[in-house]
Design a protein around this nucleic acid. Structure first.
Lengths: 178, 178
DNA sequence: AGGCTCATGTAAATAGTTACATGATTTT
DNA sequence: AAAATCATGTAACTATTTACATGAGCCT
């Protein structure tokens, strides 16, 4: 049950409309979570019905117009509750290593180009994240909140670097074996 | 759509019953996928209906008795097809970094013990995986299939090591900041 | 007979994805 | 006026999790 809390966090950092949220999930929040706009709109509706957020009063309220949401005190309390929760780590879930293992049974053949393709994609993300780090924290974090945001970014960087290094090794071993 | 393929792979490596599969998902397959027994039984039924696997003929067929499944040629073909598929990497999905970011907004307070707890759990898994590696491949892999299984295990080891290192850094930074 | 474990399963709820629909605003 | 883009939304489907049910075999 993390999506509503991800949304509450994002809205506390900056009140936004649904599409803005979707875009921010593709960026800063998205190092460790993703959500489509459909999921976000559904969840915004639910959070509003539950009294955790509200639509910010505007002048032109109709369909097809952007609606900006902000967090209510009950929402902040719910988020505080969640932060102090005990929740065990789940196993990572990624189909690529699974496919590699399947290839070990039915033949490795076509998989190497796919591994290479993934390595390149992870490398791109890695460069992107490193760019964020250089751009957003040139002198290190300036506040508690920035310190934490940067830590999460560094986690994303580590993760991408880990993929690149693992994929490089896998490619090398599989090519050597030919 | 990875669960059926994970099951096909596991069954090709060794024909098994539902519960055996569930256990193997907690071990070797489980570095990058998990599945509860409910999911597995449902999926086994579906794979059988679709003609990709079949129940191995036994003597005592009743309810509450173990049923062993094996992969049919159509199942192997489906797996081959999947291995050669293009599938883009998805963003990792982990609530802990999200909770850290939420803590940056509502206060870091109680989160450090939880970070420490997670670090210890990941450390345990790391030691466990390293034990597998020492035990199962004392002289390196002996076949194509072992080579690939070991690569996946090494991926799991990298991932756990990554968590431990990131969590250690986060704990250190948050404590320093007090 | 009672309790325990192994094994298979059903039901319901929650979460996430894919495909499509529709209005408003801007550009050509 | 047509096309493109921005924004919000619905519907249907697929996947995953949680809770519960039930039979078989073994041990005391």
């Amino acid at each position: 049950m993390s999506l509503p809390h991800a949304i509450l966090t994002a809205l506390l950092e900056k009140p936004s409309s649904g599409l803005e949220l979707a875009r921010r999930f593709d960026r800063s929040i998205g190092y460790f979570w993703s959500a489509s706009h459909q999921q976000i709109y559904r969840e915004l509706g639910k959070l509003e019905r539950d009294g955790l957020i509200r639509e910010r009063p505007t002048d032109a309220p109709t369909r097809g117009q952007r609606k900006e949401y902000e967090v209510l005190p009950a929402g902040r309390e719910e988020l505080e509750r969640w932060v102090d929760t005990r929740e065990d780590p789940k196993v990572a879930r990624d189909p690529l290593p699974l496919r590699l293992r399947a290839a070990g049974v039915v033949g490795v053949r076509g998989l190497v180009p796919e591994l290479r393709r993934h390595r390149d994609l992870h490398l791109l993300r890695l460069e992107e994240y490193r760019g964020f780090e250089r751009r957003d924290y040139p002198d290190g974090p300036r506040s508690e909140q920035e310190r934490v945001q940067r830590l999460v970014l560094l986690g994303g960087i580590d993760m991408e670097a880990g993929w690149v290094s693992w994929l490089s090794r896998a490619i090398e071993e599989l090519e050597k074996a030919d």
